[in-house]
């Protein structure tokens, strides 16, 4: 078994230093400085110069690759600092865990993965609260006590609304915490799954000989762990709770936004919805009338024999042996 400072581990230490250089050299020195910036530099290189789909894909590529390179660094770093190469699946799983670091509710592979997601669907509430008390402050004990106090005076209604929003936000934070606990559970299970998959390969005499193979097996294990938790009754409850609490906060925020924008004469969401509803009801009524009209026209239509005398559409792709009509010229609405 190899020892630190001796042959194999000396090589690993060198490798740890050199691996990103190899990558960046291969990339024509485009990636400069600290390797963590490498993937970002790749994305920045194309900023705004590509088509929409290329640009979006590049951004996602940069995110995914950066996480992979981060993992490579940690994993190879762990190899370089280890006393010996692990000799079995359990040892490799421990080394792997060491590379990923100690997991916590807000520090585990899944949390990091989701935190790196961008876009409206993954957006938090921080931007909603500009001009409001800092939501983080609401969680403090003394503030929590104030949230239950009766409101009075000229600003009573406003205070009650803010209290309701603060309470809803705290409940949302609780729900998020419950969800994060399950993500932590899934991340921890992933390590166990990784060990099991390694052990199975060991039994079969199959070895992983590249970093990519190790990484791919880790992904298999991580997905297994995540799926197990995601299909559990606990997750079902936690997920529903998280969605519902988030929607409660959003709804209350929307109410406040409406109040403010209404004061400036801006059309509100409620008004737009009301217009959309009325317009849609009219569309439905019009189509119902159209259906009735067509039914009446059908009953008073001339016999089929006369109808078949109409000119047939001539098209190479017209179905054969079928009396084809000309394409409908009018919209049946």
């Amino acid at each position: 078994m190899a020892k630190a400072g001796s042959g194999a581990f000396k090589d690993w230490e060198t490798l740890h230093q050199q691996w990103w250089n190899a990558v960046s050299d291969g990339a024509n020195k485009v990636v400069q400085g600290d390797w963590r910036d490498g993937a970002k530099a790749f994305g920045d290189l194309f900023g705004g110069k590509l088509g929409d789909s290329t640009d979006a894909a590049t951004q996602r590529f940069v995110g995914g690759t950066k996480q992979y390179l981060d993992w490579v660094e940690k994993f190879s770093g762990q190899l370089a600092t280890g006393a010996t190469f692990p000799k079995d699946a359990a040892g490799w799983a421990r080394l792997f865990q060491g590379a990923l670091g100690q997991f916590g509710e807000t520090r585990n592979p899944l949390h990091d993965l989701f935190a790196a997601m961008t876009g409206d669907g993954a957006r938090g509430f921080e931007q909603f609260f500009t001009g409001w008390p800092n939501p983080a402050d609401w969680a403090k004990g003394e503030v929590q006590g104030l949230l239950g106090m009766p409101a009075f005076g000229y600003a009573r209604e406003s205070q009650e609304r803010q209290q309701r929003l603060a309470v809803a936000f705290l409940q949302y934070q609780d729900a998020m915490s419950g969800y994060n606990r399950l993500m932590l559970d899934a991340s921890q299970r992933a390590i166990g799954k990784f060990e099991s998959l390694l052990a199975a390969r060991e039994e079969q005499g199959r070895r992983l000989e590249t970093l990519r193979e190790v990484y791919d097996l880790w992904i298999d294990a991580a997905e297994d762990g995540y799926a197990e938790v995601s299909l559990s009754p606990e997750f079902r409850t936690a997920y529903g709770n998280l969605v519902n609490k988030q929607m409660t906060v959003r709804k209350l925020v929307q109410t406040e936004v409406e109040r403010y924008t209404g004061q400036f004469g801006m059309p509100t969401r409620t008004e737009v919805d009301s217009t959309a509803r009325r317009m849609h009801e009219l569309r439905r009524e019009m189509r119902a009338l159209q259906d009735r009209l067509e039914a009446l026209e059908a009953t008073s239509a001339p016999p089929k024999a006369a109808k078949s005398a109409a000119p047939k559409a001539k098209s190479k792709s017209t179905p054969t042996k079928v009396t084809a009509k000309k394409p409908a010229a009018r919209r049946s609405r």
Binding site: D11, V23, F46, T58, R207, L211
Partner: peptide, 30 residues
């Protein structure tokens, strides 16, 4: 032998290939 058998020179080559792919990919994407 354990289930993972990594050799430094092979890993270095793997990472070099990765870098080369990135380099070529930049031109392709552009």
């Amino acid at each position: 032998m354990g289930p993972i058998q990594l050799e430094p020179n092979k890993v270095a080559a793997e990472l070099t290939r990765f870098g080369e792919k990135l380099a070529k990919g930049m031109n392709v994407l552009k």
